[in-house]
Design a protein around this nucleic acid. Structure first.
Lengths: 143, 143
DNA sequence: TTATTATTGATAATAATAATCAATATTAGT
DNA sequence: ACTAATATTGATTATTATTATCAATAATAA
């Protein structure tokens, strides 16, 4: 994801809603973009704490929700873990392979599966808006 | 699912582990089997309360976990809702279409998708053990 | 019937997420 | 640059789902 483009998206979203572009929002956005994918609020908070930004947990939480609102982040939940946020802008839809041993998350995509899902919905008189496919197992290393 | 067969499974599981077959377990099992699919602990607890069985919330919770352990129930989580339990014995694997308006959950199955999922895992050097496919949208009524 | 011990039910603990609110910072208007 | 208006922050508390605790009770085997 392009950093400037991401900042623009956040900035425009904020202007549109008469919100305010704060030091904390800039910091959280940049750190979120630099951080690994599928990060939790707590993890992001800890990275920011190490940087001595003085940003509180609640602010991190609130602003990840904001990033989601403006389309920069997606929320996901694996099993009974905490909610994770992944970068969304400029990312095409993808599914997840989740290693139950080491926790690694592999992003994958299969057009045929996507198409069959749409068909499956159609056959059931159902209008699909989004979907979630997660395959749990063990990755190459943990086999 | 056959009621007697279900009771047998629970009974044998209990014997095997030197646990005890209590009035509460029998009551919870029967009510779980009669109740709608995809029920929460709270919902099941409320049904049992109406029946004046005097069974506590913790007991319902504990025993749904037990049903899961012995293969009679499966746990699922939709969005950020509470955990739901569905009958598992004698049910083949299936995916879910979830109406975001009325909350209805439709169970579906597609062998081609299943096979493609296995292929997808294989290509990524991943050993699949189980998977979860949820399609969110709106059902016929809510369209 | 009795001894053993698993279970129950009420309650407290835990943990993730969201709400509260006074102090502060940002923004628009002058 | 100054000011007024108000969105945001950070610390804390509230909420909610789930799990743990524990004394009293009930199920089981001998």
């Amino acid at each position: 994801m392009d950093r400037d483009e991401a900042r623009d998206i956040l900035f425009n979203f904020i202007k549109e809603k008469s919100l305010r572009y704060t030091r904390q929002r800039e910091e959280i956005l940049q750190t979120f973009l630099s951080a690994g994918r599928h990060i939790t609020v707590e993890e992001l908070y800890n990275v920011l704490r190490k940087k001595n930004t003085g940003i509180g947990y609640a602010t991190v939480h609130r602003n990840l929700k904001l990033m989601k609102e403006c389309g920069l982040a997606d929320e996901m939940k694996i099993g009974s873990d905490k909610t994770r946020f992944e970068q969304a802008y400029g990312q095409r839809h993808h599914d997840h392979l989740i290693c139950m041993k080491c926790g690694r998350i592999i992003e994958v995509n299969d057009d045929r599966i996507e198409r069959l899902q749409d068909k499956l919905a159609e056959v059931n008189n159902f209008f699909p808006l989004k979907h979630k496919l997660e395959i749990y197992g063990s990755c190459k290393k943990c086999r």
